[in-house]
């Protein structure tokens, strides 16, 4: 088992290098270090000397991939790409272009992101599964078909609408929750209620459909028939037999997103003014802060890969048919 995990982790390294290469090319084509300097030093009065000193200070004056001015291994080593990538692998994200330590900022912003993403994830999982069970219970009835149509409708609405309408009704007209903002601790619950609600509602359509189809696949299996034959009530059958068996594909299916919850939600956070990693990313894109975007891309990829590894592990743990080869 441990050997398997180690093998998976080693397999992740070339992927991370690939990720680095892609983002590096992208962001150095968009934004040469000269551009970054100008954006950072402000619009009013910028001189070439200022730009040069700014670049030298951050080591951005190195060549991109190949350094002709030095000898030996340093020709490859003393380049912007290698230097920047090495630091990333050690999780040293360095300073952002506005002179702030990115690592410290990321740590500080994880909690608000999680405060929204984690409850949204859990509540959505719970609601979607219960609703799906309900639909399975009433399968084939008018209730089932209506709800399925409603689910498709919910899926067909852009997430932006939910946010705009939710803010309008719940905050502006009904005064239930603050319009935007964030606070840590228990008093901050009122800030996250609406984003969580919107997150859950927006995802209900696809979630319920997916879980329902998983449950329906199970319902024709032999063990359900046996249970029914024993004269158990339909509710009992659902909760004691269908649910545990259906949870397996559901859990292994959702494990992959759990680490990515740390990344937060881009749109939700910026609409509600939540100081999480999602709004951090959007701000960085707008400000073209190469260092932050690079760090976030790296972090996002690492978390995704962790999710993949977790999925593999959960398969091997729960599903006896998959062997550790």
């Amino acid at each position: 088992m441990i050997g398997y995990i180690i093998r998976r982790i080693l397999y992740a390294i070339p992927i991370l290098i690939g990720v680095n290469l892609i983002t590096f090319i992208l962001f150095f084509m968009i934004n040469s270090p000269d551009d970054m300097a100008r954006a950072q030093l402000g619009a009013k009065q910028v001189t070439p000397e200022l730009i040069a000193s700014w670049k030298a200070e951050r080591g951005y004056d190195r060549p991109l991939f190949f350094n002709e001015t030095v000898e030996g291994i340093a020709q490859v080593g003393d380049t912007l790409f290698v230097q920047e990538s090495l630091k990333l692998f050690l999780f040293e994200f360095g300073l952002s272009d506005s002179h702030r330590d990115i690592g410290a900022d990321i740590q500080r912003r994880m909690a608000p992101s999680l405060a929204i993403a984690l409850p949204t994830f859990l509540i959505a999982l719970l609601t979607n599964i219960s609703l799906a069970l309900l639909l399975v219970l009433f399968r084939g009835s008018v209730f089932d078909t209506t709800m399925m149509v409603v689910a498709v409708m919910i899926m067909s609405i852009s997430g932006l609408f939910y946010i705009i309408i939710g803010q309008l009704l719940l905050s502006k007209l009904w005064h239930w929750v603050p319009i935007s903002g964030y606070q840590s601790g228990w008093e901050g619950v009122k800030f996250v209620l609406l984003p969580i609600l919107i997150g859950v509602v927006a995802g209900i359509g696809s979630g319920v459909r997916w879980y329902r189809s998983i449950f329906l696949e199970q319902i024709h299996q032999d063990y359900i028939r046996t249970a029914r034959a024993k004269g158990l009530s339909e509710l009992r059958v659902l909760f004691w037999h269908l649910l545990p068996n259906g949870m397996l594909p559901i859990l292994t299916g959702v494990v992959v997103v759990i680490p990515s919850l740390f990344m937060g939600s881009l749109v939700m956070e910026s609409f509600f003014g939540i100081p999480g990693l999602g709004s951090y990313t959007i701000d960085a894109i707008n400000a073209q802060d190469f260092a932050i975007v690079k760090a976030m891309v790296f972090l996002g990829s690492v978390l995704y890969i962790v999710g993949l590894i977790l999925t593999d592990i959960s398969y091997t743990l729960f599903d006896p048919r998959v062997s550790l080869s």
């Binding site: 803010q167 905050s171 502006k172 603050p178 319009i179 910026s270 003014g273 100081p275 709004s279």
Partner: peptide, 18 residues
């Protein structure tokens, strides 16, 4: 000072007295 990136919440909160 609270960070308020969008103009809309800023205005609504002003009207609400915040």
């Amino acid at each position: 000072y609270t960070l308020e990136k969008e103009r809309i919440p800023l205005w609504s909160k002003f009207l609400q007295g915040y």
